[in-house]
C-alpha cells in the first residue's frame, strides 16, 4: 500500500526550446506518510503536485497508487490549492461537499459532509456561502471536502501560505490532527522551512537534481535544509 512516482519527467515549451522542470523523479511513500516538499519559488513544486494529481500529464514516468499506475485525475488523490476560493461560490459550504460526494457517487452525502465539517470545526458554518467565510475557514472547508471524499492521498499546494501567522499555525495543527486521526497520505508543498519542520514526518527538497530526502530527526536539519534550498538553482519563475 503506497503512493509512488517512477521516473516522472515534465517539460514545458519555452522561448529557447524545451525547459525541463524535473526529470526521472522517483519516490515511494508508505500509507499514512506525511511528506513536506520544500523548494524555492519557481522550482516546480506546484507542477510536481499537479502531475502527481493527474491534472497535468507527465512527459514520461508514472504515478502509482498501491502499485497500480493512475490514469488521469480522480478523487483518490485530491488537491488542496493555495487559492482561498476553491470552494464554489454559488453553493453553501455544505452543498460544496455534498455536490462533490454525489458526483463521486458516494452514498450518504449529507451525513458524510456534516461529519467532515465537524472534523474541521465548521459545522456551524455549514449553511454559509464561501463569501461569508474567512480565508482560514475556506481552506478548512476545502480540507473537509477532501476528507469527505475519503481521498487516500492529499496533495497540498502551500494551502496556508496566504493566511496570517496565527491562523496559519491553527490550520497546520488542524491538518496534523486530522492526519493522525484519519488514514491518508499527505504531500505538502511549502517554501517555508519553519512550516516544514513543524509538519512533516518526512522532508524532501525539490531542486535541479530532483527530490533530496532529509531525515527529520537528524541534528542540524534546519541548516541542512537552508543549504539545500540555497542550491535550488536558477530556474525561471514561471514554472510555479
Amino acid at each position: 500500500m503506497s503512493f509512488a512516482a517512477e521516473g516522472l519527467t515534465k517539460r514545458y515549451p519555452g522561448k529557447d526550446g524545451m525547459h525541463t522542470v524535473f526529470e526521472q523523479l522517483s519516490f515511494s511513500l508508505p500509507d499514512g506518510a506525511f511528506l513536506v516538499v520544500l523548494g524555492r519559488s519557481g522550482v516546480g513544486k506546484s507542477t510536481l503536485l499537479r502531475v502527481l494529481a493527474g491534472i497535468e500529464k507527465a512527459d514520461a514516468g508514472e504515478v502509482l497508487l498501491d502499485g497500480a499506475p493512475r490514469a488521469g485525475a480522480g478523487r483518490d488523490v485530491f488537491f488542496i490549492f493555495q487559492d482561498f476560493n476553491q470552494l464554489f461560490p454559488w453553493m453553501t459550504l455544505e452543498q460544496n461537499l455534498t455536490y462533490a460526494l454525489r458526483r463521486a457517487k458516494l452514498p450518504e452525502s449529507t451525513a458524510r459532509a456534516r461529519e467532515a465539517l465537524g472534523q474541521v470545526d465548521l459545522l456551524d458554518a455549514a449553511g454559509k456561502y464561501p463569501r461569508a467565510l474567512s480565508g482560514g475557514m475556506k481552506q478548512r472547508g476545502a480540507l473537509a471536502r477532501a476528507l469527505a471524499l475519503r481521498s487516500r492521498v492529499l496533495l497540498l499546494d502551500e494551502p496556508f501560505s496566504s493566511l496570517d501567522p496565527i491562523t496559519r499555525r491553527q490550520c497546520g495543527e488542524t491538518l496534523l490532527r486530522l492526519w493522525r486521526a484519519r488514514d491518508f497520505t499527505a504531500v505538502f508543498v511549502t517554501h517555508d522551512i519553519g512550516e516544514a519542520l513543524s509538519l512533516g514526518t518526512g522532508i524532501a527538497v525539490l531542486g535541479r537534481a530532483g527530490l533530496s530526502f532529509f531525515d527529520p530527526s537528524a541534528p542540524g536539519l534546519a541548516e541542512d535544509l537552508e543549504n539545500a534550498l540555497g542550491d535550488g538553482g536558477e530556474k525561471p519563475e514561471y514554472f510555479d
Binding site: I55, G72, F78, F79, D83, Q86
Partner: peptide, 14 residues
Amino acid sequence: TPAMYLDIGHLLSL
C-alpha cells in the same frame, strides 16, 4: 471560469 474549478472538475472525474 477559473482554471482551478476545471481542475476540481477533473479531480471529481466530471
